[in-house]
């Protein structure tokens, strides 16, 4: 399916702050089998210089996937979510996410292309903390498959 290239450069309003809970980090780490004590034990995390347990590197997707609904559910863009496949994913960290963070996401559409009947949509989500300082930038490319 083809997506409207005029959406490139569009930035969406900041999302409501997401409170990163210690138990959520533990739950996510357990679900991926990450047993390092720094994901589970605040004392172990503090030894590494963090104020509370540290999230595994892909944890921010929990927040950014929810935040990106404002794009994929934007009726003006018209993505058919049942035809969406995950293409690429990237995280560029300023610092790790830790429990206690309050994170805000700002979504920007970076690229819209069509090829072979499929639409490709690249979004960048800038994740900042309560002080407005950058934490991680997250890129996600989705493929909207054309009708077979």
């Amino acid at each position: 399916m083809s997506l409207d290239p005029s959406f490139v450069g569009r930035t969406y309003p900041p999302t409501a702050p997401y409170q990163v809970g210690r138990e959520k980090i533990r739950e996510f780490a357990t679900a991926i089998g990450a047993t390092d004590p720094a994901h589970h034990d605040p004392a172990a995390a503090r030894k590494l210089g963090h104020r509370d347990v540290v999230a595994p590197p892909t944890f921010p997707v929990v927040i950014t996937m929810a935040a990106s609904r404002q794009i994929v559910e934007d009726p003006a863009l018209g993505v058919d979510y049942s035809r969406v496949v995950h293409g690429d994913q990237r995280f560029a960290y300023t610092r790790p996410v830790v429990a206690g963070d309050e994170l805000v996401c700002v979504n920007t559409i970076e690229e819209v292309t069509s090829r072979g009947g499929h639409g490709f949509l690249t979004t960048r989500t800038d994740v900042t903390d309560a002080a407005g300082e950058p934490v991680v930038a997250v890129w996600s490319k989705i493929v909207v498959r054309g009708e077979a």
Partner: peptide
């Protein structure tokens, strides 16, 4: 990657294509 790096907080950039 974090196992190879020897630290759970060592990742500064991580990207893949599925």
């Amino acid at each position: 990657v974090t196992t190879w790096a020897g630290a759970p907080d060592a990742v500064v950039d991580f990207g893949v294509r599925f």
